[in-house]
Simulated assay, not measured.
Amino acid sequence: MDIVLIRHPAVDVEEGVCYGHSDVALADAPEASAAALAVRLATLQVPAPRVLLSSPLTRCASVAAALAANFGCAYSCDDSLKEMDFGTWELQRWNDIDRALIDAWANDFEGARAHGGESVEQFVSRVRTWFDALQQTRELSPAYVVTHAGVMRVIAATVLGLPVERCLKWSLDMSGCVWLRRDDVTHDWSMVRWNA
């Protein structure tokens, strides 16, 4: 089973703004981004997708639709693939958020919800539930999943048996791709590419 996770391209948001669950526009046309991604994936010899799955947020869904048209396959959106909900911090500059609240979050990384949105624990549970269901449907392989950095890190941590916090330190560019493969006999996962 092959799953290729694709981070959405750059967004039209000022640097330093928290936009996790918010529906923000892409900086460039989704068709151009999808064409560039298709070329890169072909260069990496990633198998063409049987299906494209996506976060419903515009920055992902518009690219997924363009990729699906390029590959001639179906695509669908799932709320489980949205980025973490940062509640009242959404669309706020990180530097403008009360430092005490950010420190409290850091001190209880998994459980804190000072922003009123999702805790990391809730977010991880949402993504892992989706991923567990995906693994039961072999006919979807290879699948491309257009989503967000947080979702990609949770899935990578899950398949590699690592704490999510550890994967937060790994660089993941806009339009970065993560190729994961599961052995259909042993059911062991491996990472073929990170941030390709």
Rank of each mutant, 00 (worst) to 15 (best):
I3R: 06
L37H: 00
V13L: 07
A35S: 06
I6A: 05
V4K: 01
A38Q: 04
Q45A: 13
V24Q: 06
H21Q: 11
S22H: 09
P30Y: 05
A42S: 11
A36R: 08
D2P: 11
V4C: 14
A42T: 14
L37N: 01
L44H: 08
R7A: 07
V24S: 08
E15K: 15
L26Y: 03
A38F: 01
V17A: 08
D23P: 00
H21I: 13
V11L: 09
I3P: 01
V13Y: 03
A10Y: 13
L26K: 07
L44T: 02
A38D: 07
A42I: 09
L37A: 01
D28I: 12
R40F: 04
I6V: 07
L26D: 01
P30W: 04
H21W: 12
P9R: 03
V17L: 05
L41A: 02
A42V: 06
S22A: 12
R40E: 05
R7E: 05
R7Y: 09
L44N: 02
T43W: 11
T43N: 13
A10V: 11
D28C: 15
A38E: 04
L44W: 04
P9T: 03
R40S: 02
D2E: 15
E15Y: 15
E14G: 15
D28W: 08
T43D: 14
V4W: 02
D2L: 11
I3D: 00
S22C: 06
L37K: 01
T43F: 10
A27S: 08
A27H: 09
A38Y: 01
P9C: 10
H21G: 10
P30E: 01
D28M: 08
Y19H: 04
D12T: 12
G20K: 01
G20H: 04
A32R: 13
D23I: 02
V24L: 05
D23S: 04
C18P: 06
V11G: 02
A42P: 10
V13R: 03
L26F: 09
L41T: 00
S33A: 14
H8N: 10
D12P: 12
